[in-house]
């Protein structure tokens, strides 16, 4: 549904995007990750024609957005990274304005989302908090009923409860066949929602792939508490295993698969076992440390 091919963009000679290429399929959520200034927002703006790329092409629902941005935008529900809105308009007026250009949009659906997020319809946008503006922007993007959702930091400023609700909605939307491309600094949130992740750094695509593929790179750690004190000599030994701790509390670090690690614990007096494996955050640190470029 989204195809990006060698998109490059520079501002006053400084490269913001360097030949970025990836795609997002139907029913897929792709998380765009990178530190500030890595080019995430520029890339998303390029896809909807707010910024013109210097070179490269992008397709949205089969439409070349670099050639016909207007036609491409008809297929996109977009939530900007900057939650700036027309202060003199009410929430309802902004919703009407935002979705009014989408032929397939549903005002009642937009109102339902706003109601779900607790955003009052009559309140002026200028009086809304940062989080409320985010909710309004997310609601209008969802209400557009477009087959592609492009969301620039949609969870930023949302409280944990609303964030979970929003994540659940996004997963449902993907389940209905929508392609979702979203940038975020919330790596734990991306782990909960995304099928694939793309990492950007200084305008370059460092890596893109399935979430599981990245999580497998993270360290595997099990925190184990025994019912009785266990000496190190009693613990199983393996090439891929390292034990840390003593007595009742031990951590098993493994670079192999978790199944084999769990199997080796058979016969030990385990009181509790907790998975403390690293997630995307650890992958992020590793990637940005080694600067692996695709």
């Amino acid at each position: 549904m989204i195809r990006i091919e060698n998109i490059s963009k520079s501002y006053d000679g400084v490269a913001a995007l360097r030949e970025v290429s990836f795609d997002v399929g139907k029913g897929e959520i792709l998380g765009l990750v990178g530190p500030n200034g890595s080019g995430k927002t520029t890339l998303l703006k390029t896809l909807v024609g707010v910024v013109r790329p210097d070179s490269g092409r992008a397709w949205i629902a089969g439409v070349d957005s670099t050639e016909d941005a207007l036609e491409a935008r008809l297929h996109v529900g977009y939530s900007p990274g900057d939650p700036a809105l027309y202060d003199s308009l009410s929430v309802l007026e902004i919703l009407e304005f935002a979705i009014g250009f989408h032929p397939q949009a549903s005002l009642s659906l937009g109102k339902q989302f706003l109601d779900l997020f607790g955003v009052p319809l009559e309140k002026r946008a200028g009086k809304l908090s940062h989080g409320m503006k985010r909710k309004l922007l997310l609601s209008q993007a969802l209400a557009s009923q477009a087959p592609v959702l492009i969301l620039d930091e949609p969870m930023e400023g949302l409280d944990p409860e609303v964030r979970k609700t929003a994540e659940k909605i996004l997963v449902e939307q993907a389940g209905q066949g929508r392609a979702i491309l979203m940038s975020s600094h919330d790596l734990a949130g991306l782990e909960r929602t995304c099928h694939r992740v793309a990492f950007l750094r200084e305008g370059r695509l460092l890596d893109v792939g399935k979430l599981e593929h990245f999580l497998e790179r993270a360290s595997r750690v099990l925190h184990i508490r025994f019912r009785e004190s266990v000496e190190s000599a009693r613990l199983p030994v393996g090439k891929e295993w390292t034990w840390k701790g003593d007595g009742l509390s031990w951590s098993l670090h493994t670079t192999g698969n978790l199944e084999a690690a769990l199997a080796c614990l058979k016969g030990l007096p385990i009181a509790s076992c907790r998975d403390a494996s690293g997630g995307l955050e650890e992958v992020f640190d590793a990637l940005y440390g080694e600067e692996k470029t695709l």
């Binding site: 703006k45 909807v48 024609g49 707010v50 207007l70 036609e71 935008r73 008809l74 996109v76 977009y78 900007p80 990274g81 900057d82 700036a84 809105l85 935002a98 250009f101 989408h102 922007l137």
Partner: peptide
Amino acid sequence: EFLLSRPV
């Protein structure tokens, strides 16, 4: 960004 990302 909000205005120009609309299909208009």
